[in-house]
Design a protein around this nucleic acid. Sequence first.
DNA 1: CCAAAAACTGCGCGCCACGCAAATATTCGC
DNA 2: GCGAATATTTGCGTGGCGCGCAGTTTTTGG
Lengths: 198, 198
Amino acid sequence: MTGLRERKKFATRQALGIAAMRLAIERGLENVLVEDIAAAAGVSPRTYNNYFANKYEAICALATDRAVRAGLALRERPPDEPLWESIRHSVLVEYEGGDPDPEWVAGVRLVTAAPELHGEYLKARRAMEHELADAIAVRTGASAGDLEPVVLAAAVNAATEHAVGQWLEAGGSVPVHAYVQNALCELESLLPVERPIR
Amino acid sequence: MTGLRERKKFATRQALGIAAMRLAIERGLENVLVEDIAAAAGVSPRTYNNYFANKYEAICALATDRAVRAGLALRERPPDEPLWESIRHSVLVEYEGGDPDPEWVAGVRLVTAAPELHGEYLKARRAMEHELADAIAVRTGASAGDLEPVVLAAAVNAATEHAVGQWLEAGGSVPVHAYVQNALCELESLLPVERPIR
DNA sequence: CCAAAAACTGCGCGCCACGCAAATATTCGC
DNA sequence: GCGAATATTTGCGTGGCGCGCAGTTTTTGG
């Protein structure tokens, strides 16, 4: 990742993602052309298509990256930490800085409100589920094909999305962070692990 | 649903969905034009777009319908039946007849193999999750905004998809049915409900 | 500093989503 | 049944998109 090539590539991807989200928020999804996004990121339309196959991928790129990072974060928690605590930390970093930032809030609102984005957004969430499941499997020493890590990851994802939904409905005076933490704690009590996974 | 109008509309939608899936299987996703699907269903290309916004929606239409039906099925189980049994029945009907049918198998393979279809397929699965969650909430008497039904539905979905994945890997000598039933039973033991939900 | 590898770009083509308005089919009150 | 009201289908036209191709520019490794 230290090569100039890779850094530039990543920067372009990120610039496109940010530009796409910004434009979609301020103009509305339908009034953004691929051409606009490319221009805003200082790149030719043709190059845009080397990074993303369509508008929606670009808009969700940030969400995708963040989601994947949650999985990586879990892998890097100290292995002696209780699993639930590790999961809570890994998921919560996703929502750490974002909450008061009005652009972040608008982004969440956009992604949940626009049906055209749902498919892409779900792909991002599922990517996180997979990362989480793998990381959990490593931690619990599960063998390949085991059901438990998969279910656990899915439950975490569902609880998280549910929390965000509740937070959105509530109007946003309390930070998301609190909602998500709450949901994860409640989830923990719903999934009592007989042989306590550490 | 008894009006001629509604029946025709439903028939067209189904014809388009079937045609789309068939063509995609026998030619490969990239070699199917919207025009072809419309023609195969005996409808103008313009009409196609009154039903579906793109190729992928049409291809996944059957999956979507089946997924939603699972939710409805749960609502119609006898309320005195144990909840887990109701869930198992409702989910299993999705996989009842399909398994030996080579076209059904090819469809599952296509949907899981082609990345372009993932977003749409995930939307179908999530629709089922919502239906299941609602039905479960009714059954357990949960109040609006409760986490438990949502998590339960997500877990059921994850277990189901996991089972199908395992079955695909195994090559298909044992029917899917068995895999899914297995996974759901295992899931049941993973989610011991303290105050036993009936 | 140079050759190999990779990324960016312009061009062009076929496909697609959708608004609009005319034609056709279905429903419903009478 | 009949005719008006309401839905659906369809053709046409347009703007936008996805991507293969081939030429140029940039980065890399030696």
